[in-house]
Design a protein around this nucleic acid. Structure first.
Lengths: 183, 183
DNA sequence: TCAAAAGTGTTTATAATACACCCATGG
DNA sequence: CCATGGGTGTATTATAAACACTTTTGA
């Protein structure tokens, strides 16, 4: 999946999810490597395994492509795809954006808060305040300032500060609000 | 897994996790039914699928047994078991207790807050305040009062009110504290 | 009447949202 | 100098932990 122009998209192959058959002795990840170009994926995680109608067993993965990475193929808006695996991927993504640093896998290396906001809006499917997004992620230590500023467009405006994710590996940045251990 | 006498336990079969081979065309759940008595499980969910050393593919499930349900076999404290599947199950359980009503699958049908506290302590691995546990779960609508009280023991004390879980199916009762949609 | 266990009232802490206002730039 | 987009300061809200205190029982 990727967040492009405010929309969450899925890469399809002839109208289906990309797939590859498991060869004997091989790891699941090795088979995944034949289905997609994993070098383009900033994050991969396993979803559900199910027995399909034809009796074969399928294990689905969620792979995330940063918006600056080019990965050719038929990208389609995730909202229009009713496959259970795609639903599962969307809901997993939405949840993890809330309590981990997973945004790193969708955003470019450096970005303005406005650009990051657009990524979160695409993935979460609801509006996000740039002001609060910045403060939450800074407080959690997920975002870092980067030198320089983005020049404003033709219509003016204050130049935007640049940020990056402090880590490019999945980290749980926040415990759940409820039932945390006593001090 | 089950929470028994303040300890989280795993059911083993000859020192291993119970397992069954998948027969052609069969669902994964059907195979699961040959590995364990699923009628004793109040909740089942899939964990990870991995290729084992011998080249076979294994899909692990987490099944929860209420503490009042008798399910014979070799129950062992989960803390002493280093298997990756068991670790994954524990951490999944801990997380879901925080933001869902999953406690219904470990607790008896009706219980006092003290008894429920013991279940949560076993599963979470840290102390839990009965006072706050009650208030959080009541506020969320997860717990309901039940008529009657539990008589105190020999040493006296106020009789405890009885409660039950409002639902016996998994429900997400609380959004994550962060990044929730605007009103 | 005292110890034990259960439960309530109230304060405190934390972390998010909401919103008014200030800053920097292009035309 | 004003429209535009970026950013900060501060108030409000939500939710849970902490803790003092009250209730109800057995002996």
């Amino acid at each position: 999946m990727r967040a492009q122009d405010g929309t969450l998209e899925v890469l399809l192959d002839h109208g289906r999810l990309p797939e590859a058959a498991l060869r004997g002795g091989e790891t699941l990840e090795a088979a995944l490597g034949r289905a997609v170009d994993v070098s383009a994926l900033a994050h991969v995680e396993q979803l559900e395994t199910r027995v399909l109608g034809n009796g074969s067993v399928a294990t689905a993965y969620l792979g995330l492509v940063p918006s600056e990475t080019h990965l050719g193929g038929a990208w389609r808006p995730a909202a229009g795809i009713a496959l259970p695996f795609v639903r599962a991927a969307q809901s997993r993504l939405r949840a993890k954006l809330s309590y981990t640093n997973l945004g790193f896998a969708l955003a470019p290396k450096t970005f303005t808060i406005s650009e990051l906001r657009e990524v979160y809006v695409a993935a979460l499917g609801h509006d996000v305040s740039a002001t609060n997004l910045q403060r939450v992620l800074i407080r959690r230590g997920v975002l870092e300032r980067v030198d320089g500023r983005r020049a404003p467009g033709r219509s003016g405006g204050r130049p935007a500060a640049l940020f990056r994710f402090a880590s490019d590996r999945l980290e749980v940045t926040d415990e759940f609000a409820a039932l945390r251990p006593p001090r």
